[in-house]
Design a protein around this nucleic acid. Sequence first.
DNA 1: AACTATTTGTTCGTATGTATG
DNA 2: GCATACATACGAACAAATAGT
Lengths: 232, 232
Amino acid sequence: MTRVYLDIARELEEEVRGQYKAGDYLPSESKLASRFSVNRHTVRRAVDELVFSGIIERQQGRGNMVVSQPYDYPLHAGARFTDNLVEQGSMPSSVVVSRALVEPSENIARLFALASGKKVIKLRTLRKVDGMPCSVIDHYLADSSWWPVVKYFEYGSLHHFLKENVGVHLSRHSTRVRAALPSKTDCRLLQLSSKTPLLIFKTTNVREGTSEIVEFSSSHTRSDFVEIVLEH
Amino acid sequence: MTRVYLDIARELEEEVRGQYKAGDYLPSESKLASRFSVNRHTVRRAVDELVFSGIIERQQGRGNMVVSQPYDYPLHAGARFTDNLVEQGSMPSSVVVSRALVEPSENIARLFALASGKKVIKLRTLRKVDGMPCSVIDHYLADSSWWPVVKYFEYGSLHHFLKENVGVHLSRHSTRVRAALPSKTDCRLLQLSSKTPLLIFKTTNVREGTSEIVEFSSSHTRSDFVEIVLEH
DNA sequence: AACTATTTGTTCGTATGTATG
DNA sequence: GCATACATACGAACAAATAGT
């Protein structure tokens, strides 16, 4: 009768470490409950243990996702990738995950000095290193007339794509850095535990030679094994 | 009906911060349950929140004890200071909190290309904004012969002090950025909750005009209301 | 756009186990 | 042993988010 949930937690943890990879989902709590012949509360308590130890991330309406790499990555301190800041906007190895013409937020409309009602292009790209998603970047483009072209951007360097296809050369204007814990979306896209802090770089890019801000990007990078290098 | 436990958690937290001191006990869960007219599970869930945030500790058979009384910051969320990266090494408003000649770690000895047995100077400075500690910086100086002079550095810009008093001009060599949750020491010095992520900048500085690394610094900045601006 | 099925989240009720004094 | 307080477990119901039809 006593402490069933700890046994289940141990069993689940072992299975996760042995047979799951980051991004996989556990069976639903109902299925686990019937499998272990316990009440759903009890498996839930068991899963709580894994959530607390950072192996599992709960996603309401979706399921319980595995967020750590059991035996893939040697996450011991010191083994850390480095990424160059200046490539953040033009990662050659990033892939578009979503793309839309959207109503800009108030901040972005002000930044771009947009007339009200005008839409902006929003691109979300995901960058992986050795198959592991390590940063999500949201790009906002001020000029929605680029949409017919940008619609066909799939992967690679966005800045290079823009130069080739719309003849715009972007140059970096300012960058702000902060750290924060991941949002639910960050957790999902980066297969991350909500306890892993992110580095957030907000960059504005201008049309080269002018002071016209044409792109704003916000990159969210997992900071447990990626370190950003600044050039001086 | 929904999320009653969060309201109760907020209420309890407020009372704890206002009227309890470390070592006090909350009323029993049954009493709280009847006071808030909810099931005991619900107050339990509420207390869980306080346990998770580290201000309550459960003691089976005894009660729920207040273990810390976190500082109450007069700062509303959203008010965010910005700090310029290039001043990180030479904050005019920082104060020395500790200072010593220490045995360097392996990494630092290698970085400085030091002979074994040589010591390095370690300075820890604290920078406050409006009275609130917002970053701790550990400076390591390769040349221990500066000690008699550095012993008298108390506050202000370290780089300026070194230029004036030992005739060394430092110039930035490389910077690496990451984010992490605070250590216990960080929490203490910055009066932080362990859930607030920190920005960590590791910078190496060389003697100007040479490639001789003479200073390494690691700055830990609270990132909930400080944002770092990069210049391009 | 509306509806449905699935999955996690919250709350109630009840009962029993376990630690403390 | 007894009373009290926290800990675990069962069952039921509904809320809220998500995904797909």
